[in-house]
Write a protein that binds this DNA or RNA. Structure first.
Length: 274
DNA sequence: AGTCAAACCTGGGCGC
DNA sequence: TGCGCCCAGGTTTGAC
């Protein structure tokens, strides 16, 4: 489910709620969510710690605690991290409950249970391969067109597969890749190295633009996604291709096509995206 | 290097 | 109403 804009929206909603609070208790109802250290060490290492920062890297949430510990969370497809009051109804797939020093709770809900949590020394993320191998953050200033151009030129793979590769660029998923490719006028199956300089620039700008707009509209809520306070986002109302196969292109009116590209369902305009 | 299926899970939608 | 099948915002692993 959540891609960069959704995870960033969760981060922004949780940060003001959690900062300064101490975690008084941890209740784990689905042990498989806790990847490391052991369940006992995880609980013991968290209880009594205070939240000092809530950060994001790619699609990972990093809840930094006192004593140099960080709770690393990945929501995968259906994970939700929600700040609420103890009397609020328990959602069916609630797997972890953190009791907070102001009486509130932070609950982890995840229908498919693909999500994961790790407790590690802050910055010491080598044991999480997906986190330690992440590519650049597309919205940061250090993500430069010049470097993106050079990186694309070295790859023969389909542009869509490359943009979904988190070690190439962090944070894009199926929705925002399709949207960015549409905005840039690039067909998802084009070999990365075949893009002209003009196309590379258009894609670079489209990626940053679509992610920024996604954040601005507090994420895309198709099925399960909600922010840290249970609120849905609204970017689904602005999607131009994702989930619109068979409907007319908003730019040229041609019927949007659906195809498997890089093993993922992809929607694109065969006329606008060459 | 690139590509692909399968695996991890549950639930919603569709055809019959 | 029920059954079976396919699909889903992600990632990893292992095979060709």
């Amino acid at each position: 489910m959540p891609e960069l804009p959704e995870v960033e929206t969760v981060r922004r909603s949780l940060e003001p709620r959690l900062l300064g609070l101490t975690i008084n208790s941890v209740e784990v109802l689905a042990e498989k969510i806790i990847k490391q250290p052991t369940l006992a060490e995880f609980k013991q290492g968290i209880v009594g710690k205070q939240v000092v920062a809530v950060k994001r890297r790619g699609k990972y949430l990093l809840v930094e605690l006192t004593k140099g510990q960080t709770l690393v969370v990945h929501l995968r497809m259906t994970g939700q991290f929600i700040y609420c009051q103890p009397e609020q109804v328990h959602e069916k797939h609630t797997h972890v409950i953190f009791g907070l020093s102001n009486g509130s709770e932070l609950r982890y809900i995840d229908i498919r249970r693909f999500g994961e949590m790790h407790l590690l020394p802050t910055g010491d993320y080598g044991s999480i391969s997906g986190l330690s191998s992440l590519g650049p953050e597309p919205l940061e200033e250090q993500f430069l067109l010049a470097e993106f151009t050079i990186a694309l030129a070295a790859k023969q793979t389909k542009i869509k597969a490359l943009l979904l590769d988190q070690s190439f660029l962090a944070g894009l998923g199926n929705i925002y890749v399709d949207e960015a490719l549409f905005r840039a006028g690039v067909h998802p199956e084009r070999p990365a190295k075949s893009l002209s300089q003009k196309e590379v620039k258009a894609l670079y700008l489209a990626i940053r633009e679509v992610l920024a707009e996604g954040i601005e509209h507090r994420g895309t809520s198709i099925k399960d996604y909600v922010d840290g306070e249970g609120r849905a986002g609204t970017f689904q109302e602005r999607l131009k291709v994702y989930s619109r196969s068979g409907k007319p292109c908003l730019h040229c009116g041609h019927i949007l096509h659906k195809a498997k590209v890089a093993t993922r369902t992809s929607v694109f305009c065969p006329k606008c995206q060459k």
